[in-house]
Write a protein that binds this DNA or RNA. Sequence first.
DNA 1: CAATAGATCATCT
DNA 2: GATGATCTATTGC
Length: 160
Amino acid sequence: MAGRIVETEAYLGGDDLASHSARGITKRTRVIFGPPGHAYVYFIYGMHECLNFVVGPEGTGGAVLIRAAEPLVGVALMQRRRPKAHSVAKLASGPGNLALAFGVTRAHNGVDVTRGTLVVRAWNHEPQFDICVTPRIGIRQCADLPLRFVIAGSPAVSGR
DNA sequence: CAATAGATCATCT
DNA sequence: GATGATCTATTGC
């Protein structure tokens, strides 16, 4: 499967209280403080898994939540995994949906995302996109920081 | 279309 | 023992 990431949120290290890393290294947050280029997958609300990429120098605790993607390859498989989705654009719209559609689970927590079965990369052959910046969604702490990034007009973007 | 309820559990206090 | 980087179905206009 493959998709284009169209919506992300940044969670900073240090004093960003919305970030899981804000309260230091724990069993759960240790991969966020590990080397960048690795997946951080967490379980939330008793039912959903969310995919992040660790970014920034090792030890700083920064991560990027992948909130939505446009399905490009493997659409049929994603539809089988998400029978409730009402359109292709919604297959991976929202963090929990994206993880479901792409089959990402906590088993991927800590994997190297520069090589292997779960890979992110830059795509150099696309036209330029307009990126909109907004506050992050679904948080209470630091809810005013402009750290959500969406590709303008993408049908797969969630919320606002 | 907007607002709300319910599902459900790992994690940290 | 409360809370949360969510989703879906349902209710109410």
